[in-house]
Nucleic acid binder design. Structure first.
Lengths: 215, 215
DNA sequence: TGACAATCATACTGGACCGTCTAGTTTCGT
DNA sequence: ACGAAACTAGACGGTCCAGTATGATTGTCA
């Protein structure tokens, strides 16, 4: 009865489970929750339908696992510890690097489709949308606000409400490309050059409003 | 064969058609495209299923009419001619009034649900999403950019790229509440006091970055 | 009034699909 | 090697649903 923490991919059953998750991810992302077909998922997994239902109670349960797994992966990529501004030459360069990094990591076809999927299923799965909000925009803003508080203590910023400042900075570069991606599809995703421009201009506006005037 | 432009609500058939549209709107908004049921729509319309299909070729066609009709109504409310800044006491007051008005008009449960619906159906109805983008954010930004160009000519703003300035201003007050509404549902909608705060702070940041320094 | 079009209630067709069951086969631990 | 557990392919029950067909009923207009 020794509980050995086996890697999921080491056993045959574990691999099959991962295959199902992968195939379900693709299918749900392509067709949505109602549009997805459990038979198709089983076939794409190279696994019998029985095995699908051995690993996942129902279509709903599978959907929830797919979405939370995707959010977990996204978390790892998006929220690695942000470099400290001290180590950067200037505040401006730090803010630019942060913005550019967030744009590069968040504006991927997979993450945008995940966002569309969760928004479209808000009524059926409100918890998933809440989690996506908490671990996505809300968390980014919260982390940013902490950084801004320290920067204000150092006299580099003037932001009485650090959270509001973080909201402003975050959306100054994120809002337009995310909105385009939501409504125009992956064709609306910005090139790297466009990302740099969004980042650069957001930093300019942000520092004009929140930068300390005293040199 | 005289084509008389009859008001749709004046004839019995016309009224029935409008009833179907209204019921379909409610059902699609509640259940999404795949989740909606044509029998339910017929019953809610007080009309037989036959009559539904006499007026609309298919479920898809009905959905498209419902969404475009909603976008048309929204257009009327959101994009009434913006007051001219000249008539306002100060630029700051003008910008605040504009932002507050946009927030009040756009952040309604119906419009947010329409947005969720269209985003969720992007793959199935890409044209609807494109139209929503053109007549929503893109149009607001375009109108704003024209105003900003005039204001710059008057020396009240400094914005070499008026469209970028419009993007920044628009999302400074819109992005956070819209994002919350998308992921948290109608509970996330801001109160009037919160709208005023978003508007006021957006104006402050915007003017710090784009306001003319010369008094 | 009478003919004709619209509408109604309802049944039906054809198909999709979730989740279960069955019977036979493979894999795995011991 | 052997028994248990997992797996497979496929069928199936039950349900749902878009769209059509039917035959009766109502409303409209000459």
């Amino acid at each position: 009865m020794a509980v050995v923490a086996k890697d999921e991919a080491s056993t045959s059953s574990g691999r099959k489970r991962l295959n199902v998750l992968a195939a379900a991810t693709e299918t749900f992302m392509k067709s949505g929750f109602l549009g997805a077909n459990m038979d198709e998922i089983a076939v794409a997994s190279g696994v019998s339908k029985q095995t699908v239902y051995k690993n996942f109670r129902s279509k709903e349960a599978l959907f929830i696992e797919v979405v939370t797994a995707m959010m977990g992966e996204a978390d790892l990529r998006v929220h690695t510890a942000p470099m400290e501004p001290d180590s950067m030459e200037t505040l401006e360069r730090y803010l630019f690097a942060y913005a550019h990094r967030q744009l590069s990591v968040a504006l991927t076809p997979a993450l945008m489709q995940l966002r569309r999927l969760v928004i479209g299923e808000l009524a059926r799965f409100p918890d998933l949308a809440r989690i996506l909000h908490e671990r996505g925009p809300q968390r980014a803003i919260s982390v940013l606000a902490d950084v801004f508080k320290r920067l204000e203590a150092q006299g580099l910023l003037t932001c009485p409400d650090a959270t509001l400042a973080a909201i402003h900075f975050n959306w100054l570069f994120m809002a337009e490309p995310v909105n385009r991606a939501m409504l125009l599809g992956d064709d609306g995703l910005p090139s790297d050059a466009e990302m740099r421009r969004f980042a650069k201009e957001a930093v300019r506006v942000f520092l004009a409003a929140y930068g300390s005037k005293a040199p």
